[in-house]
């Protein structure tokens, strides 16, 4: 018996492996196909930015750069002060993300876990801001910001966007999923609400916090109308506004504009690539 067993077992193992292989191949095939569709426009931009000669619009579209080189990127650096714009973008984004996480999760905690009069009204009012007309917000907010003396400041750019309905909603959902017994145990131990919030809720809501971070970051990084209204001095503009100077009335060069677009997108993409494990936490251990 002992000697005959290995044969079929090995075969089964091999079969399982083959099955797994086929499954994985299919999996990757689907993933790749979708990736081609989502990546292509960025790829085209990159190819355009890296090409130093040839036609930009060709049919069928170009797949590889012609005479690849960094000339267009160098021209971006020569035309606008990329470093200064990056610095401004980073300041605005960091302040926005930190502020949003704090303000939204603080607001979400009582809405998710505490009973108090007026709770539903407050939550309804917050949701209503998502729905009611917000087309003139920029105008009214600019008047408010300048009356507060925050025109031309980072505070003026960042403050109005911190308390967002989406963020509060997202954090509320996450807090609601925290098991009751954990909270009850803490209460029995005499923890204050702030301690529960800070030491139990926030760590357990880390995936939601990470997701909110990456979503807020993109919005803060890419916004251009609002910072351009608040900031009077162009040297305080973030990169999203700064790159618009590349498409001047008499200096529009599509390859340079493409290089500017690549420079704007790359940092966020890098951040996403290296922070994704945070919103996938709790998963790492489970797989092995």
């Amino acid at each position: 018996m002992e000697k005959t067993l290995p044969m079929p077992l090995a075969a089964t193992a091999k079969k399982i492996n083959m099955n797994k292989l086929a499954k994985h191949t299919l999996h990757y095939l689907v993933l790749t196909l979708l990736a081609v569709i989502t990546v292509y426009p960025f790829w085209w931009t990159l190819v355009t930015a890296l090409s130093t000669s040839g036609d930009v619009f060709t049919y069928p579209p170009r797949m590889w750069p012609e005479n690849p080189g960094l000339d267009n990127f160098i021209e971006v650096f020569k035309t606008i002060d990329v470093i200064a714009f990056y610095k401004n973008s980073i300041i605005i984004s960091v302040l926005t993300v930190a502020g949003t996480l704090l303000v939204c999760s603080m607001a979400a905690y009582p809405l998710a876990r505490m009973q108090f009069p007026g709770r539903n009204i407050v939550f309804g009012a917050i949701l209503a801001t998502m729905i009611l007309p917000s087309e003139v917000n920029f105008l009214v907010n600019f008047i408010t910001v300048s009356k507060l003396g925050m025109g031309d400041t980072y505070t003026g750019v960042v403050l109005p966007g911190l308390a967002g309905a989406v963020g509060i909603f997202l954090m509320k959902q996450a807090f609601e999923a925290v098991p009751n017994d954990l909270v009850d145990a803490a209460r029995v131990d005499g923890a204050t609400e702030w301690q529960i919030f800070w030491h139990i809720m926030l760590p357990l809501a880390r995936p939601a916090l990470a997701a909110l971070t990456i979503l807020t970051l993109v919005a803060a990084w890419n916004q251009y109308i609002w910072p351009s209204i608040v900031m009077a001095s162009p040297d305080k503009f973030p990169l999203s506004v700064g790159v618009l100077y590349l498409s001047g009335a008499f200096s529009f060069k599509i390859r340079v504009v493409a290089a500017g677009a690549v420079l704007t997108v790359l940092p966020i993409l890098m951040v996403f690539l290296f922070t994704q494990r945070y919103f996938l936490r709790g998963f790492d251990g489970a797989v092995k």
């Binding site: 008047i143 351009s228 100077y245």
Partner: peptide, 21 residues
């Protein structure tokens, strides 16, 4: 003198007029 990109100058001008500046 300040130059602003075409994409933003209209919104910026409108807001500046609205704010009285």
């Amino acid at each position: 003198w300040t130059d602003y990109p075409w994409d933003v100058i209209q919104a910026k001008f409108t807001a500046a007029v609205g704010a009285g500046k």
